[in-house]
């Protein structure tokens, strides 16, 4: 009995530590002016979100988050930074009214969304399945969601070809 209590409180503590990592990473991804710090903060934040997916009961999605976001997108951003040398950007500071307007817009959005999510009395569905397995996901992807699956594959193919063509043509034009 006491053992399970200890494990529960440990899980609580680790949850709040993970939430702190997510917030710290998000702040680090937005506020510093050095772009490398932004990417490192993004990596921290996305890893924290993967841990939150673990808490939400989906090991598969946590792995996919690490693989796709941290492993692919962040590395692509790092390559873009190396190729475009944006480190010494000559950007002047924003004027104060614009900063205030941006903070105000984000704060209004945040207040609205949190108010809605705390005011609403969320009701779970009447009968809920308990089928979290990867097998079910695979079956659904190949039966009910087969069309969406194929359209996403097509979108990815077009994106890859488009990226190659865009960068290749621009090199030919500029040199």
């Amino acid at each position: 009995m006491s053992g399970s209590f200890v494990i529960d409180s440990l899980a609580h503590a680790v949850f709040w530590v993970v939430v702190g990592f997510v917030f710290a990473g998000a702040a680090l991804a937005v506020f510093p002016r050095n772009i490398v710090y932004n990417v490192l903060g993004l990596i921290l934040c996305l890893t924290g979100v993967a841990a939150l997916f673990l808490y939400l009961g989906s090991f598969f999605l946590a792995l996919m988050q690490l693989l796709i976001y941290v492993g692919a997108i962040c590395i692509a951003i790092v390559f873009a930074i190396m190729l475009s040398r944006p480190l010494h950007l000559e950007v002047p500071k924003r004027r104060m009214p614009k900063v205030a307007a941006g903070i105000g817009a984000a704060a209004i959005f945040f207040a609205a969304v949190t108010a809605v999510s705390w005011k609403t009395a969320w009701k779970p569905a009447a009968e809920r399945g308990a089928d979290w397995t990867i097998t079910t996901i695979g079956h659904l992807l190949l039966t009910r969601y087969a069309l969406v699956f194929e359209v996403i594959s097509l979108v990815l193919l077009v994106a890859i070809i488009g990226a190659i063509v865009t960068t290749g043509f621009s090199r030919r034009l500029s040199s």
């Binding site: 997510v22 917030f23 998000a26 702040a27 979100v49 817009a105 984000a106 945040f110 969304v113 999510s117």
Partner: peptide, 11 residues
């Protein structure tokens, strides 16, 4: 938590 992430991204 999700709303905080989205608002920081919006900002």
């Amino acid at each position: 938590v999700a709303a905080v992430l989205f608002s920081l991204g919006l900002f």
